[in-house]
Amino acid sequence: MSWTWFHKLASPPYVYALAARLTPWFAWPAALLILGGLYAGLVLAPPDYQQGEGFRIIYVHAPTAWLSILVYVVMGVSAGIGLIWRMKVAHAVAASCAPIGASFTVAALVTGSLWGKPMWGTFWEWDPRLVSELILLFLYLGYLGLRAGFDDTQRADRASALLAVVGLVNVPIIHYSVVWWNSLHQAPSVMQLGKPKMPASMLTPLLMVLLGFTLFFVALLLVRLRAEVLQRERSASWLREALRA
């Protein structure tokens, strides 16, 4: 197997140009899937036999909660790669993830709380799933705060990467919290082996928004990555080239 792709991905000018070229290929499918999925979820899917129309919050809660975790995994793994191989681009990916992840964690907490009020009778409960998701938000905020404390990007990269990697232990805790402890929160209904516990008319819009939000995250990441790569670059020759394009 050839390792040239790996070396190319470590090269800032290549990544900068590639990210710019790829962005629309993620952004437009994301827009179509999100709009289509939300429309289908609000209008075409039948009401739930227990929760009535209230269950439609799932079409915004599940994708934001999914992204809150996916973005953290991408951030933690890239931060780890950056630490081990001293790869600037990997640190740039991790730094790009944090604000995106933090915002979707807020969205997951707010939509979850708006779902909890009518179904559980409360906006907030000190429940394992809810608390571990709140810790996820603090990890993102801690990461951003830590970075803001450094003037030097390289030192910010290394210190914040350590926090990001350590915080990865929270990810399985969030996922299994509903299994390990007695939780108000329901167990996963899509990502499980065997048949999903949902009819296709409810499941299809859900899969559309899950995929749409994921592509949307990639598009955001590509835009932010270009910003982070530019900030780290001191070489005049490619800066000149990148800015001309």
């Binding site: 939300l38 209230g54 439609r56 919050i57 915004v60 809660h61 934001t64 969205a107 708006l114």
Partner: peptide
Amino acid sequence: AYVWPAYAVT
């Protein structure tokens, strides 16, 4: 009162 704010926030 719950569905629309959730969609709006998202």
